Each structure stands twice: as C-alpha cells, then as structure tokens.
Simulated scan of single mutants.
Amino acid sequence: MLVDVTVSPDAVSVAGVDLVPVTVSAHLTDDTGVVPSTEMDGTMVPSVALRLVGSDRADGAELSLTAGTPQDGTWSATIQVPSTWNGTWEVSRLVAVDAAANRLDVDPPASADTTLVVTGTHRPAVTMRLSPDPLVGDGPLTVEGRFYYEDTGEGIGNQPIFFGSDNACWELRSEPNGTTRADGTFSRLYPKGDPFVRCVGIVRPSNTAVAPDYIVVRTLHPRVKPIVAVKANRTTVTPGTTVTFTGMVKPAASWQLQLQQLQGRTWRKVAGTSSNDLGAYRMAVTPKTPGTLRYRVVIPNQDPALVGVSEVVTVRVSTPGGEPRPDGGGGGGGGTAGGGTGGLPITGAATAPLVAGGAALMIVGAGLMLLARRRRPTQTPNGR
C-alpha cells in the first residue's frame, strides 16, 4: 500500500552544467514486506517515474529502503537535477512488489507533495553531424559538433562528454570517454562505420542500473548506402538446375535483400532474404527455360540515394548439346554420319548447299553412265 509520496525540495534553480540534488520518497506498507525485484527489462523496483507536465518527456529512479522496515518503511532516491529539466515535473507512476509476489502499480494523485518545479538557466545544448553523409559501405565515419549555452551561444570548453554507439547510448551506466575542445567543439573518428545510432552527451549520475542519464544528449542515425557483393555458384546451367547466389553486405548488419531478374526492361523481384548480423546472405532460383538471364541483388530504400545494388550476374541456361533438332534428335559428339544418334546434327544454315551438291553429283553420274554405254564393245560368246 502506498501511504504517500514526497519530493524534497519541491522547487530548485539550476544553471549551466551544475546539478542540484532532489530526493523522492515513497512510504510503503505491506504485511509480507516490500522487496527489491528485477523487472523483465532489467530495471529494479520499487521505482518511481517523473513526467514533465505538458509533454511526453519522462525520467525515473529506482528506490531503496532508507528508513523503517520492508513492512512499513520509506523508500527513496536522490536525483541529480540538471538545468535542462526546466519546467514542472510530477511523480507519474510508482511500482513495487512484495514478498508474496503481489504487485503495486499506481499513478499517485497530483499534489504539492508530488511535484517539482525546476528553473533552469544558461542551459547547455549540442549540435551533431555525421560525415560522410551518406556513409558508403563500412568506411570511416566521423561524429562532430559543438556543445554551447542556449542563451549566449558560448561554447562549453574542456567539458567531459560521452560518445556512444547503438545500445551503449541507452543501456548501462556511462562514463565520459571524451572532452570538448576549448571552443566547445568535438569530433570522433570511427574507423569502420555502421548503420547504428550514434550519440554524444554530457552525462550525470544515473538513478537506474541499466541506463545512463544525461544533462544534454543528441543522437543521430547515419544515412547508409550499403555495398552489396554477389556471386553465383554456377553461371552455365541446364533448365531445372538451382543457381545459388551468395555474398556479403557492408556495413555488416541484418539487411532486407531482394534478388531481381531483368525481364524485358524491368528488374523484378524473384527471391528475398535477410542477411545475418555479419552481413552474409544466400538466395537461390531454379531457371526453367533456356535463355540468357541477368540477376542482381538489391537493398531497397525509400531514398534512392541509399539503395544498395550489386553488380549484374549473367546466367546462361541451355539444353545439353545445344538446341534440339526439329525432328527431336539431339546434338552429340563422336560417331559417323549416318550412324544414328552418333551422327553430327544438321543445322538449317548448311542444308541448302548439301542438297544442291547432291543433285549436281547425281546429274554428273547419269551422264557418265550414258557415255560408257555408247563406247562399250560387242562381246562374243568366247569373250572376244
């Protein structure tokens, strides 16, 4: 049972990158006793959430027992409040679990005791950009920008900052791993770029075990034009033979790919798959009819500048020994003419000359026979 929630102090003034401690406390009672417990997302309860009034911005804190007993005690957290919290915050949720696995999940009623008014001045801000834009393949990627104060534009020099990538931006507590220059600018080179989010911020002590907290932070996803390599396990096949296409995508990640075939003047999808986390993929097709087929692998994107396209692979599909003869005979090797299936195929281009030559030989042979008859001598019974 939630007896009450208090925020102390309930109003603070914060300037620049300073922090002011504010304690949030919840008085809880339970017959079996409230116990610390881990949620499925890794957060600990009891916990409270605070929301900036008039927005969807929220933050939270895990509570620990600071007075009394688990059956009747006060659970508290001290939050280091930054100037960027400027506005009115209210405790919007409290979650707790007891030893009997009963769960309390309530929205405390709004009151003077559950609100925090923050007056933030000389508030820090940050600009951020990634280059090159777009990133082609997994080439070098530079994160650069500037920390400054909103009201004056002055750079925040020599300030410890945190550079993060992917889950590190939002998971586990973070420590500074970089520093701004004297004018507030910063840069970091990643030798191999990838499609995952990048972040840079000024961290503050976190009130959860599984996430960092920031005074100010900026995130960007790089615009990536992937490089797609492809090869076929065979490029000359007979109809009904499976052709397998494999390759790698840079940068390495899970990408949605299409195998496309050129049909007329249009590339049409004939297969699809996803690459694994290393960027490797495999797709297969089984051509049914003879012809010269052209394939490519594409990673689609609504932005034409970010579409990944492989080189074209040509696959020739033909029947064994070439095209069949009109009489159904097939081409073959070896044997002699007139020897049945071992004979050489007769093609259309050579038929006319052979027929004409045969007719000429028949005419010449007939003439020679007639001439021989005229010159043959009359034989006597004894051969004389």
Rank of each mutant, 00 (worst) to 15 (best):
Q261E: 14
S47M: 12
P132S: 14
S64D: 09
G201E: 09
S187G: 04
A125K: 08
W170S: 11
T180V: 09
S92D: 09
V24W: 12
A61E: 03
P124S: 11
V17H: 06
E171S: 14
G367Q: 12
P300W: 03
G42F: 04
R282D: 05
A110G: 05
V203Y: 08
T88S: 15
G137C: 11
V315I: 10
R374V: 03
T241C: 07
S8Q: 10
P124W: 13
Q258I: 00
M248R: 14
A67Q: 14
I161M: 09
R57D: 01
A229V: 02
E144V: 00
P82W: 11
A350M: 11
R294Q: 10
I161F: 10
M1E: 10
R223S: 02
A356P: 00
I156C: 02
A125Y: 02
P377Y: 14
L141Y: 02
W75C: 06
K192Q: 11
T43G: 05
L52N: 05
Y148E: 01
P46R: 15
T88A: 15
Q159L: 08
P326F: 08
K288N: 03
T292E: 07
D105C: 03
I227M: 07
S111Q: 07
G137Q: 11
P134V: 00
V35E: 12
L306D: 00
R294V: 01
V364S: 10
N276C: 00
T119S: 14
D41I: 04
D303K: 00
A100H: 01
L130M: 09
S76E: 00
V364M: 13
A209C: 05
Q71D: 06
R376K: 14
V53Q: 15
G139T: 04
P212E: 07
M283V: 05
M369Y: 06
D98M: 10
T84F: 10
P9M: 13
T347Y: 12
D151Q: 12
K269L: 02
T238C: 07
T29K: 15
F186G: 02
A101C: 00
F163M: 06
T179R: 15
P377F: 13
P108H: 10
A101Y: 09
R268F: 01
V136F: 10
A252T: 00
V217W: 10
V315S: 07
V315N: 06
Q258V: 01
T319Y: 13
L262N: 04
A26Q: 08
T23P: 08
V312I: 12
S174T: 05
L361S: 09
R296E: 04
A232W: 09
A271V: 02
K192V: 00
S274F: 09
G264A: 05
G340C: 09
A61S: 09
F162I: 01
E311Q: 15
V217M: 14
T347A: 11
V53N: 14
E154R: 15
T142L: 11
W170N: 09
V45Y: 07
L116W: 03
N167S: 11
V355C: 03
R384M: 08
V309T: 15
I346T: 10
V12M: 11
